[in-house]
Amino acid sequence: MANPLAQFEIKPIAEIQIGDFDASFTNSSAFMVLTVAAVTLFLVLSMRRRAIVPGRWQSMAELSYEFVANMVRDNVGNEGRRYFPFIFSLFMFILFGNLIGLIPYAFTFTSHIIVTFAMAIVVFLGVTVIGFLRHGVHFLGFFVPKGVHPVMWILLIPIEVLSYLSRPVSLSIRLFANMMAGHTMLKVFAGFIIPLGILGGWAPLAMAVALSGFEFLVAFLQAYVFTVLACLYLNDAVHLH
């Protein structure tokens, strides 16, 4: 049986070495570039006609725009407008990365912790910087729970800080674990189909089909969750609370 984890291996396509630094173009890089190209083509080609009454493709492009725009408006408010392009890019990058990764033999770059963690840390640092830029030292008040006796602060402030610091960890692990688990399970069940032969192979095949459908849901849901949480963190930084 094929190793179900082999699909996650990083394989260099073109070795690029800058000094001691490895910047090789790998299968992961290829799918990142493919994702960017797919998102760009999707939006640019479908909006080419700029119709007042949109066709199917234009409707989908507008739908994705309004979906993210509403998400930002509902979760961050009007101040979130400036960050809309970033949130939109984040959502489309993860969504298309997840969906393209579902194509058999494709590589899913969101199944790598280093990628999801990098995105989460960018969100985390960005949000923290925005918080300090908007509120200065007052942003530290975010860690002080309201309506609590100051004596309790000794206990509660470290907890608040810890929960704040754990945000990028939970954010990145959620996406990475979901993608990796789904793809591994698919591979495991798919790997049982041929060994169990024509008589027993149907059961894992049915399972693989069902899981594939489920993975489409997960692909969308995890992109949504990642983006919504980024919006909520942004909201905390913009409005405190």
């Binding site: 990083i10 260099p12 690029i16 490895d22 910047a23 090789s24 173009f25 790998t26 992961s28 890089s29 990142m32 570039v33 994702t35 960017v36 890019s89 990058f93 770059f109 790598h112 280093i114 990628v115 990098a118 995105m119």
Partner: peptide
């Protein structure tokens, strides 16, 4: 390599 290409792509 993943981080470099993530940065470029994103």
């Amino acid at each position: 390599p993943q981080l470099v290409w993530l940065a470029i792509a994103f």
